[in-house]
Computed example of a mutant assay.
Amino acid sequence: MAVTELLEQKLPVEPDLQHFLRFVLDAATQLGANPFSTARASLGLAADLRAAGAASGFPLPARLLLDQRALVVEWGEALNRFPLATLTQRPEMASIQQLRRQLRQSTAMSDPDLLLQRNVAMIRYLDETRARTEAELKKLQEALEQRQTELLESVRQAETDPLTGLLNRRAFDEHIDAAFKRTQRQKGESLSLVLLDLDFFKAVNDEYGHQFGDAYLNKMAHAMQESIRQDVDYAFRVGGDEFALLIFTDRRTACKKSQRILAMMDGKVSIGITAVSPQRYPDDTLKRFIKRADNALYAAKRGGRGQIVMDRCGVSTNKGCRVFCGEG
């Protein structure tokens, strides 16, 4: 059965849109659609029509159609469609024709004098509503920005170690996963993982007390933050005396940064380093990547602590960084 057009109207200003929506709701009710569900759907329809240019001065053409048992609104050159309601059965053609005549008469578009009066009222209404809308939008924008600020602060707190201000273990898991996947997609991008443990931290705590221990942890955090690019790299506290760096650079540069941290901590940190290397590890995984850094860290501890070990052996390296043939 052919699609039947019930109403066509252009929607240059807000009153046109409101009239069209009212006609749509009246038609849906007369055709037997559920008035409550149709009213809810009309809210989404109004938003879509406004987004397409209705009530902005642009004479957006909109049509109310009966397609089989579906009542739909169609608009614009692209013939976008919005499903408004589904009838239990298609009405008789005589009822449809009567409704068409009623709707077209109700638009009152044929009387030039009435049209002129209506246009004057529309312009005044548009000016008034524009001022109200701009004020309301400003309030909504301010509320949205405030909410976004609160959400960002909530996320920051959830990912931050409260003592040192570094990112925490939860953030480490998220960032290392994302960073590793990015290097797998973008071949050639460098990424180094540096794991750091404070040497004999428990003994420091036991001898000098927790207040001194907290200050010592903050000293470590400061050394790490001073050694990386704040807007590029990441510093984490992943455990009591365990720390990590994600540095978007090669292992040699990571070694230099680690040497700086070691010096600032008076040589009392054990450090293990690994890096993404498609040539050496063509089938690398995140689990293996972390394991290599772990192996290098434990090699540093077994070698006497207070030193830096890189996972790659058989190559020349910077002075001050040992190499270790860790598991690939």
Rank of each mutant, 00 (worst) to 15 (best):
R132C: 01
E77K: 06
F248R: 13
A299C: 11
Q18I: 14
L196Q: 07
D311F: 02
Q225L: 13
P282F: 15
K138F: 12
Q157R: 15
Q279C: 09
T253E: 14
A293T: 09
A47L: 12
G53P: 02
N218E: 04
K301Y: 09
M109L: 11
T88C: 04
A39F: 08
V276W: 15
L262K: 12
Q307D: 02
R69P: 06
D241L: 01
A51T: 09
E145N: 12
R237N: 03
F248Y: 10
K202T: 04
G272S: 11
E226M: 06
Q225N: 08
F236Q: 06
Q186L: 13
F212H: 13
E74T: 09
E153R: 15
A94P: 01
R147N: 13
C321R: 04
G188P: 10
A300C: 05
T285V: 01
T107R: 06
G239M: 02
R288W: 13
A221I: 00
L191E: 12
E327F: 04
E142N: 08
D173F: 01
F212S: 12
P278E: 15
T160Y: 09
F20H: 03
I247Y: 06
G326R: 12
D266Y: 00
L66G: 00
R305L: 02
F324T: 06
Q307P: 02
K181E: 07
R182I: 00
L6T: 02
Y216G: 01
I308W: 08
L6K: 03
L152A: 14
W75C: 06
V155H: 12
D199E: 09
E327Q: 05
L167S: 10
A215Q: 09
G303A: 14
D197T: 06
I176A: 00
R132T: 05
D16R: 08
V155I: 12
T183A: 07
G213R: 06
Q18K: 10
A28I: 07
C255G: 14
V232F: 07
M264Y: 12
L137V: 10
F248D: 08
G57P: 00
Y298S: 09
S316E: 12
L217M: 08
D48V: 15
A244C: 07
Q105C: 03
E8Q: 13
E153Y: 03
E142C: 00
R169G: 03
G267Q: 02
F324R: 08
I290T: 14
A28Y: 08
A158E: 10
K138G: 11
T129I: 05
G303S: 14
L116G: 07
Q89G: 12
C255P: 04
K138A: 13
M224F: 01
P83N: 09
K268M: 15
M122V: 05
P61M: 11
K301V: 01
F212N: 11
D206R: 11
D284A: 15
A158V: 04
K202D: 05
I271S: 15
V120K: 06
L43P: 00
L11R: 00
L25Y: 03
M109S: 11
T86C: 01
S277H: 15
